[in-house]
Simulated scan of single mutants.
Amino acid sequence: MKALLQRVTKAQVEINGNTVGSIQHGLLILLGISPTDSEQVARKLAARVAGYRMFSDAEDKMNLSLSDDNGEALVVSQFTLAADTNSGRRPSFSSAAPPAQAEPLYLAFVEELKALGISVATGEFGADMQVSLTNDGPVTFLLDTEKS
Rank of each mutant, 00 (worst) to 15 (best):
residue 51 G to H: 15
residue 135 N to R: 12
residue 26 G to K: 04
residue 75 V to Q: 08
residue 127 A to G: 02
residue 66 L to R: 06
residue 98 P to R: 04
residue 101 Q to G: 04
residue 49 V to Y: 13
residue 104 P to N: 04
residue 135 N to L: 14
residue 143 L to Q: 07
residue 65 S to T: 05
residue 23 I to H: 01
residue 55 F to W: 10
residue 16 N to R: 14
residue 109 F to M: 07
residue 2 K to P: 01
residue 59 E to K: 00
residue 61 K to R: 15
residue 83 A to N: 07
residue 114 K to C: 08
residue 37 D to E: 03
residue 79 F to K: 15
residue 126 G to R: 11
residue 111 E to L: 10
residue 122 T to D: 03
residue 58 A to G: 02
residue 106 Y to E: 09
residue 56 S to N: 12
residue 17 G to P: 14
residue 24 Q to L: 04
residue 84 D to Y: 10
residue 52 Y to A: 08
residue 123 G to K: 02
residue 37 D to R: 04
residue 89 R to E: 13
residue 141 F to P: 08
residue 133 L to T: 01
residue 107 L to Y: 02
residue 6 Q to S: 13
residue 94 S to E: 10
residue 111 E to V: 01
residue 86 N to I: 01
residue 57 D to Q: 01
residue 125 F to M: 11
residue 6 Q to N: 12
residue 113 L to C: 09
residue 49 V to K: 13
residue 17 G to D: 11
residue 87 S to C: 01
residue 2 K to M: 02
residue 101 Q to K: 12
residue 43 R to A: 14
residue 8 V to F: 02
residue 114 K to Q: 15
residue 47 A to Q: 14
residue 41 V to W: 02
residue 114 K to L: 05
residue 108 A to M: 07
residue 146 E to N: 15
residue 83 A to I: 00
residue 109 F to V: 10
residue 48 R to C: 11
residue 116 L to N: 15
residue 10 K to N: 04
residue 56 S to V: 10
residue 87 S to Q: 10
residue 64 L to W: 09
residue 96 A to C: 05
residue 70 N to R: 11
residue 135 N to W: 14
residue 39 E to K: 12
residue 65 S to F: 05
residue 103 E to G: 05
residue 7 R to K: 07
residue 114 K to H: 03
residue 83 A to R: 02
residue 90 R to P: 02
residue 66 L to Q: 10
residue 119 S to T: 13
residue 132 S to G: 09
residue 72 E to H: 03
residue 72 E to N: 06
residue 127 A to Q: 13
residue 66 L to T: 13
residue 9 T to N: 11
residue 64 L to D: 00
residue 20 V to A: 11
residue 50 A to N: 15
residue 67 S to Q: 14
residue 19 T to G: 09
residue 111 E to C: 02
residue 91 P to F: 02
residue 98 P to H: 03
residue 50 A to M: 09
residue 127 A to P: 00
residue 56 S to T: 12
residue 53 R to G: 01
residue 129 M to F: 04
residue 49 V to D: 09
residue 112 E to N: 06
residue 125 F to C: 11
residue 34 S to L: 09
residue 114 K to D: 05
residue 127 A to I: 03
residue 133 L to W: 14
residue 98 P to G: 03
residue 85 T to S: 13
residue 28 L to G: 09
residue 75 V to A: 08
residue 48 R to L: 14
residue 137 G to I: 06
residue 88 G to F: 04
residue 91 P to T: 03
residue 32 G to W: 07
residue 24 Q to V: 00
residue 10 K to Y: 01
residue 93 F to N: 08
residue 73 A to P: 08
residue 25 H to C: 01
residue 134 T to E: 06
residue 62 M to D: 06
residue 65 S to Y: 06
